[in-house]
Nucleic acid binder design. Structure first.
Length: 681
DNA sequence: CTATTAGATGTTTTT
DNA sequence: CATCTAATAG
C-alpha cells in the first residue's frame, strides 16, 4: 500500500522513456542510457516499482562494476526498500567482485577452501608473482623481462578474456612475446601456489562464482535466490561476468543498463560487444533508449554529440536537453604544462569567487601523472584538493606490512605475508627471508603462526629474533582471544609499531596511519572480513582514512577519466588533451583502441554540467622531474576535429607578465638611470 | 648477506 | 616520482 504510493511518487518524476524502463514487465530489459540521462534515478525507480509489485527486497540483486556506482545505487535502493517495506530484508547489491566474495565465502567448502582463505589485491598478487619469478631463476632475469605488475596485467587479461596466452601477448603486449614460455611457466606456478596457500586473487573471485553457478548441485540454488537481477554499467562486463548473469537469468528476470558509448574497460577484457549483443543473447529482450540529458548545458552536449558522431558503430544516440543558454566551452592553448597549471588555477579560483565551490569543480586527465605539475601549483597556492586514482592507501609499504600480519591470523599458510613480514626485521633481506620460508615449508602449513615461526627463527639474525618473537606471541594471543576485531587489530598495531618505527624514517606518521586503520576495524565483525573488505573496497584516497583535507572541507577534485565515470561537476577542466597522450600512443595501434580512447574522451566531456574547459599545451616534457628538458610539440587531440573545435571558444592564457608593463608607453627617449658608484666615493 | 647510495628508467586506465 | 639496478661499505 505504502509501497505503491511511494512508487507512484517516484514514477511521477520520470519522463516517459524512463517510466517505461522503470515499469517494464517482461523477462529481459535493456536500457541504453546516455550520459546524464538519469540512469541511476531510473534504476532506483525500477526497484521502487518492483517493490510496489510485491517483489521482496531480498529477492532483488543489484550488480555494478565500479565500487562508486555500487555504493550510490545500493544506498538509494535500500532507502527505497526500507520505506516500502520496513520489515523486509535489505536489497542485496554491490560490485561483481564483492558479491562474488560473498558467494564464494558461503560455498568455500565446496570449492576446497578453508574458511580463512585470503583475498589478494593487485599489489599482493604482484608480490606473489615476483616471488615465483625469482624462483624460476635466471631464465626470467634476462633483459627487459616484464615487471611483476605487468606480469599481473598479462595474467589478468588472459584470464578475463579466457583466451590463450599467445593471443593476448600478440594483441595487447607484443613487446613481451619473446618471454612467452617463461611467462606461461610463471603463471602455472602462480596458480598452483595460490591454491596451496589458500589465496584468491580478484579474478579468482569471479571465476569461482562462475564455476559455482555452473555446478549442477549448487548453481540452481544460487540462481533461485533472486527474482530480479539488475546490472548497471553493462558496457563494462567481460565474458565471465556475462556467464554469471546468464546463469542467474535461468530463474531471474534481468535488467541491463548501460551505454555502449561509455565502454572504457577493454584492458580488463570488457567489451561493448556484450551490450550490443544483449538482445540476441537474451532473446525477447525489450530495448529502451534514454537520450534526454538532465546534466549538461546545450553547448556542452553539442561538443559531446559531435565527438560521439565520429564513431558510426554501436547504438546511435543524440543527447538533447530542454535547458536553454549556457556558456560556450573553452579550448585553451597554454604554451606548456606550467602555464596549463596556472591557467587551471586561475579559472578554478575565479569560478570560486563567483560562488562555485571547489568541490563542484574537477580536473580530469588521461593518466595519473598528467596532474603532477598541477599538483605542485595547487600546493604552492594552498588550494586544497583530493586526487582519485592516484596512490592508494593500501599501496603504502607500511600498510601492506600491517595487513600481512593481519592475514597470518586467519591464514598462517600465507607465504606472501610471511615473506613481507620477515623482511621487516632488521638484518633480513630477500635471501634470508627466502631461506626462512623454505624452513617454514617443512612444517605443517596450517599450524598456528607462532608454531610456524619456530621453524623460521633460526634464519633470522639474533638481534631481531626477540622483537619478532614478541610479535608472534601477540599474534598467537590475538588468534585465540575471540575478542572483537577492533581490539585485536589495535593490539597487533601496538605489536608491530616498534618494527615500523625502526624500519621507516617517518615511522611515527606511519604508525598513526595504522592506528587509523585499527579504528576503522571496530566496525568490522571479524578481522578476516575487515581485511577482505579492505581489499575489495579500499579507501579511494589516503584522505579516506587519514590526513587532510577532511570531507566537510572544500576541495578541488582531481581524477583520471576512468575514475570519473558516473560522476558530474559544475565545471570540468580536461587537461593535457594533446595527441599521443589523449588518445594515448599506446592505444593508437588499431581502430578499436582509438575508438575506446574516443569513448573515454566522451566520458570526460559529459561530466560537465555548466562549464567545460579543454587544455592543449603546445609543449610537453617527457620527464617532468628530470633535469634535462627533453620535450615535444603536441598537436591537439585528434578527437578535437575541426568540426568539434568550431564549437569551442579558443583562448590563450593571459600573458602573466602583461600587467607589469603598466598602462601606456613612456615618452620617447625616456631613460631610467641606475648607479651604485656613489657608495664607493 | 644486508644496508646504503647513486644513477638510470619508465608504455594507462580498475576490481 | 617511485622503483629498480649496480656498486660499495659494513
Amino acid at each position: 500500500m505504502f509501497a505503491e504510493e511511494r512508487a507512484d511518487e517516484v514514477l511521477a518524476e520520470l519522463n516517459p522513456e524512463q517510466r517505461d524502463a522503470a515499469t517494464h514487465d517482461g523477462e529481459r530489459l535493456l536500457v541504453l542510457a546516455g550520459a546524464g540521462t538519469g540512469k541511476t534515478t531510473t534504476l532506483c525507480a525500477r526497484v521502487a516499482w518492483l517493490l510496489a509489485q510485491g517483489v521482496r527486497a531480498e529477492r532483488i540483486l543489484l550488480l555494478t562494476f565500479t565500487r562508486r556506482a555500487a555504493r550510490e545505487m545500493v544506498a538509494r535502493a535500500r532507502v527505497l526498500a526500507q520505506r516500502a517495506a520496513p520489515d523486509a530484508g535489505p536489497v542485496l547489491g554491490g560490485t561483481f567482485h564483492s558479491i562474488a566474495h560473498l558467494v564464494v565465502r558461503l560455498h568455500a567448502s565446496s570449492l576446497g577452501l578453508p574458511p580463512g582463505f585470503g583475498v589478494l589485491d593487485a599489489g599482493d598478487a604482484a608480490d606473489l608473482l615476483d616471488l615465483v619469478r625469482e624462483e624460476q631463476g635466471q631464465a626470467a632475469r634476462t633483459r627487459r623481462f616484464p615487471r611483476a605488475a605487468t606480469m599481473l596485467d598479462i595474467y589478468s587479461r588472459t584470464v578475463n578474456a579466457q583466451q590463450p596466452l599467445d593471443a593476448v601477448l600478440e594483441r595487447a603486449f607484443p613487446w613481451c612475446s619473446e618471454h612467452r614460455d617463461a611467462l606461461g611457466d610463471a603463471f602455472r606456478v602462480y596458480c598452483a601456489r595460490k591454491r596451496a596457500l589458500h589465496l584468491l586473487d580478484l579474478d579468482d573471485l569471479l571465476l569461482h562464482w562462475r564455476a559455482l553457478a555452473a555446478d549442477e548441485h549448487i548453481g540452481a540454488g544460487i540462481a533461485g535466490a533472486f527474482d530480479h537481477v539488475l546490472v548497471d554499467e553493462y558496457q563494462d562486463v567481460n565474458t565471465i561476468q556475462v556467464d554469471i548473469v546468464r546463469s542467474l537469468a535461468d530463474r531471474a528476470r534481468v535488467t541491463a543498463v548501460g551505454d555502449d558509448f561509455q565502454a572504457i574497460y577493454s584492458f580488463r577484457a570488457a567489451s561493448a560487444r556484450h551490450i550490443l549483443e544483449f538482445p540476441v543473447r537474451f532473446s525477447g529482450a525489450h530495448t529502451i533508449k534514454l537520450e534526454r540529458n538532465y546534466r549538461s548545458s546545450a553547448p556542452i552536449l553539442d561538443v559531446a554529440n559531435a565527438v560521439s558522431a565520429q564513431d558510426r558503430d554501436g547504438y546511435q544516440k543524440v543527447l538533447w536537453t530542454e535547458r536553454e543558454g549556457g556558456r560556450a566551452p573553452e579550448l585553451c592553448f597554454p604554451c606548456d604544462d606550467g602555464e596549463q597549471a596556472r591557467a587551471v588555477c586561475e579559472r578554478v579560483l575565479s569560478a570560486r569567487e563567483e560562488g562555485m565551490e571547489l568541490r563542484a569543480q574537477a580536473v580530469l586527465f588521461r593518466t595519473g601523472h598528467d596532474s603532477d605539475v598541477l599538483e605542485l601549483e595547487l600546493r604552492r597556492r594552498s588550494i586544497p584538493f583530493v586526487k582519485y586514482g592516484g596512490l592508494r592507501f593500501l599501496d603504502a609499504a607500511h600498510v601492506k606490512d600491517f595487513v600481512a600480519l593481519l592475514r597470518l591470523l586467519d591464514n598462517p599458510a600465507d607465504e606472501v605475508s610471511w615473506f613481507r613480514l620477515l623482511q621487516l626485521l632488521d638484518g633480513v633481506g630477500p635471501a634470508r627471508a627466502r631461506r626462512a620460508l623454505d624452513a617454514l615449508r617443512t612444517g605443517d602449513a596450517s599450524a598456528p603462526a607462532l608454531e610456524r615461526w619456530e621453524h623460521a627463527a633460526a634464519h633470522v639474525p639474533e638481534g631481531a629474533r626477540e622483537l619478532a618473537g614478541a610479535l608472534m606471541r601477540e599474534l598467537a594471543g590475538a588468534a585465540c582471544a575471540g575478542a572483537p576485531a577492533g581490539t585485536v587489530v589495535e593490539r597487533l598495531c601496538a605489536a608491530i609499531a616498534p618494527l615500523i618505527r625502526l624500519r621507516y624514517e617517518d615511522g611515527e606518521v606511519r604508525v598513526s596511519d595504522l592506528e587509523a586503520l585499527a579504528i576503522a576495524a571496530r566496525e568490522a565483525d571479524s578481522v578476516r572480513h575487515f581485511v577482505s573488505e579492505l581489499v575489495l573496497d579500499p579507501p579511494s584516497s589516503s584522505a579516506g582514512l587519514a590526513g587532510p583535507p577532511h570531507l566537510d572541507e572544500d576541495y578541488l577534485v582531481l581524477s583520471t577519466v576512468h575514475s570519473a565515470k558516473g560522476l558530474e561537476w559544475d565545471a570540468v577542466h580536461l587537461i593535457s588533451a594533446y595527441d599521443g597522450n589523449f588518445p594515448s600512443d599506446m592505444a593508437t595501434r588499431d581502430d578499436d583502441g582509438i575508438a575506446e580512447e574516443r569513448r573515454l574522451f566522451y566520458v570526460a566531456l559529459t561530466r560537465a554540467r555548466r562549464r567545460l574547459h579543454v587544455y592543449v599545451p603546445a609543449r610537453y616534457y617527457h620527464r617532468p622531474s628530470a633535469r634535462d628538458d627533453a620535450h615535444g610539440y603536441g598537436q591537439a587531440s585528434r578527437f578535437l576535429s575541426e568540426a568539434v573545435q568550431r564549437l569551442f571558444e579558443h583562448t590563450r592564457p593571459d600573458d602573466a607578465t602583461a600587467p607589469l608593463l603598466g598602462r601606456g608607453a613612456p615618452p620617447a627617449g625616456h631613460r631610467v638611470e641606475v648607479s651604485v658608484e656613489h657608495l664607493f666615493a
